[in-house]
Design a protein around this nucleic acid. Structure first.
Lengths: 334, 334
DNA sequence: GTGAAAGCGCTAACAC
DNA sequence: GTGTTAGCGCTTTCAC
């Protein structure tokens, strides 16, 4: 079915077959100037030999590997999977390969992966950074020094690096308006570690809406399902006064549904729940979940556009979120 | 925060700084033999200069790009996301980068992506092929000719290429035994296009269990959510005699739940449902779904091991499936 | 318009 | 044990 393994054709083979110099072949193949006749001969020879230029040679010469690196916390998280899909979809239209690494939100792994990208001479990176502030600065300094074209996605950590984010603050605010309109006052926020911006947005939203923010009502979890579950369960048991819950991501929301079910607290009768991310199962859940939808796919696509764009890039682009009301919120009851 | 962009150090710089030849540097850095003193000098110089070897140079010289290519139908499908996670996890322990491409189950895109991998001189590929039989042969011939180390995952299409698959036939059989034990006779199979092996397993299981197989009860859909929904809806409307449904994947299962809800057919009262893939939402669904769990992560991990392994590789490894009984199946009622 | 030749950073064969 | 050297396949001056 498949023939013997063949030696790979080189530009030199094509040059000989076409009776021209290698430089001419290179020019023709990369759209440079050549006489119509020469061009035709080269193309014919290339086709005949089934020649495919080696990215290896080209990259070494150009001192850069094409393609883009993508660093995300977790590929099994539906939100990041969708973001990845957006990146892949954009990259495909440019014919650029994408190398994916998962950080697990661990700065150490993130730094390792950045090192690997530099070693590969990748010159474009899209990343969902695991930390912000100083730590992010340290981690990303080598990449910037090496001249990588970095774009952050979903999180905004350094003013000098372009970011594509969802307008989380607006999303949180809309959710809070909705919940407070239903009569809720004791609202908890279930956050991933390091979601400091969203926590700030949460307390800001609350105070701007005239509800005193209670620091104890912000609980943190790592991104894993276990950690999320423990955090929700703890909250539900220790703070029976809480009547509404905002989950800062779909994994956290999943844990919330599970924990609530386990502890026999009913949604929305006992506590109302809003989750970040409109994943497919939000609609299949019982009850169907009200969510703050973020344009995951777009986030990835736009980030890839920025990473691929040559010239000056905008600082930050923020995409709108949308509150999708389903059946997981009700009026305050207790 | 970040200094000026620096010229990248080369092996030559290190050699000069250490007062040795480039070959010695290369040897020391790749664990070859050298005197303790030389080794130390080289290491010190490399560290001082913050030298990181260029994968570009090495790859060109070695005539191969390290790393592994991964071709999957859809990264937003939880099953493939998990499989991808397994591949990434194994690759990470070998320090190998992974380039991901999505085929959308389209042979044309698959062929394109294979071309790109060859151009990159990737020498290892893990793929969930979009077609089997002749078509797969044609599509993959160039890759095999180029000497790529190919491993198929989830689907088994050519005897000469190692595959890592779940034991789908056993999974189907167990599911059928369970359903038939509940009294069901008119059982439909909702399959993705090209799942011919599983369809065969389905009819085989039925006949071996003494239930006449009805060809009309196998319905096909493309992998997209829309196509799946249309297929289920059509089935549910045209064949009211069907009392049980086996969905050949989580996207199909999702569509089944949605369509059933829309058409007001109750699960499990009106029709029982078993879905392939134990995704997180199966438990959150109402009712919680009985599933045939496949070890998605393991599939990916094992495939990566095979792809990374140097010597002779086993032909096929089949991993067991497990029927996880929840609440979406009941006794035949109508 | 075209060809010859110089390297990109690295490894491996070979000489010492 | 170590240095010198010849390329890997390609692009890009620089002559012609």
């Amino acid at each position: 079915m498949n023939g013997p393994m063949q030696r790979r054709m080189t530009i030199k083979d094509v040059a000989e077959a076409a009776g021209v110099g290698v430089a001419t072949v290179s020019r023709v193949l990369s759209g440079g100037s050549a006489s119509a006749q020469t061009r035709e001969r080269v193309l014919a020879a290339a086709a005949r030999l089934d020649y495919h230029p080696s990215a290896l040679g080209r990259n070494l010469r150009r001192q850069r590997t094409g393609g883009i690196g993508l660093l995300i916390p977790d590929i099994t998280d539906a939100f990041y999977a969708k973001l990845t899909d957006g990146v892949l979809s954009c990259a495909r239209s440019y014919g650029e390969p994408v190398t994916v690494g998962v950080t697990g939100d661990d700065p150490e792994r993130e730094a390792e992966l950045i090192g690997a990208l530099i070693e590969q001479s990748m010159d474009r990176v899209i990343a969902v950074p695991s930390r912000d502030g100083e730590t992010a600065g340290e981690i990303w300094a080598p990449a910037l020094r090496a001249g990588l074209n970095v774009v952050f996605a979903d999180r905004q950590v350094r003013a000098d690096v372009p970011s594509v984010v969802a307008d989380d603050a607006a999303g949180v605010l809309t959710a809070m308006e909705y919940l407070i309109g239903l009569g809720h006052r004791k609202i908890a926020f279930l956050a991933r570690h390091g979601q400091s911006r969203r926590v700030a947005a949460f307390t800001d939203a609350l105070t701007s809406l005239g509800v005193p923010a209670d620091r104890g009502l912000v609980v943190h979890a790592r991104a894993s399902r276990d950690s999320a579950y423990a955090a929700v369960a703890g909250l539900l048991q220790n703070r029976p006064d809480v009547t509404a819950l905002l989950a800062g991501g779909n994994v956290l929301g999943e844990a919330a549904v599970l924990a609530a079910r386990e502890l026999d607290v009913r949604i929305p009768r006992d506590v109302s729940l809003i989750m970040f991310d409109d994943v497919p199962w939000a609609e299949l859940c019982s009850p169907p979940l009200t969510v703050v939808a973020r344009p995951a796919q777009d986030l990835g696509y736009r980030a890839a556009e920025l990473a691929l764009r040559q010239g000056r890039r905008p600082r930050t682009v923020a995409l709108p979120t949308e509150l999708v009301v389903r059946a997981s919120c009700g009026p305050r009851a207790r």
